[in-house]
Amino acid sequence: MKALEVKNLSKKFGDLEVLKNVSFTLEEGEVLSIIGSSGGGKTTLLRCLNFLEKADEGEILVKGEDVYSAKAGEKPVITEEAQLRFGLVFQQFNLFPQYNVLDNLTLAVKLKEKNTPKEQIEEKAMELLKKVGLSEKAKNYPCQISGGQQQRVAIARALMLNPEILCFDEPTSALDPELTGEVLRVIRSLKSDNRTMIIVTHEMEFAKNVSDKVIFMADGVIEEMGEPNELFGSPKSPKLKAFLSRENFNQEI
């Protein structure tokens, strides 16, 4: 069974068509990277998958269950627990500044699982912090740790709710170059845990290595989709060719 099926997703902002009939599927444990120049609709796609935007048309199925469906001119139907099947890590981390790292992780779970003992939730949080290499920062506030560490906390926070599909929107774009490595390493470690993930990224080398599948988006359309060595090795669409040579050029200088 497919972990995720996205069928004919479309989204407009006013007259601007940002997503046009976007469809793809994802197997359980697969990692999908989405690449493309800015303004192509990558963020909007992730936001639609996390219901921060409501797609105008299309369907989203998780493990065969319809969690979201929208028809033109009708109110979209979204199932109750749809939200928690997805997780999202933001470009700007969006940690809660007034809470320490541990509380950032536990807040939502404590509110959701009122009957679970606090200690148990905190134990789980500490395990995840260990996983992202930040056990000793549990009592620090977000403003006291580096951007790379903040993003690792944000990843751990998303994992607390154990989403079936974890999405990342350019998780390293807000970071200094020397801090991207630690975040990418954490994401890579999640792949070995068999996590289903969708990663929007500008790190081409990373996308090439970590993904099972790559989507190249341009102007709201999936221009090309395939395995990383096909897509990077022998791109077919002229837009992708142009994009890749631009990226290579940027990498070299």
Binding site: F51, L52, N94, L107, L111, R157
Partner: peptide
């Protein structure tokens, strides 16, 4: 910042919890 509301939403927090647990203090 809007990102604070959005973080709450993707963590499945209710509107009430979002306001009283995260937004109000800020």
């Amino acid at each position: 910042p809007r990102g604070q509301y959005e973080a709450c939403q993707v963590l499945g927090m209710s509107k009430k919890d979002t306001f009283f647990r995260v937004i109000l203090m800020q």
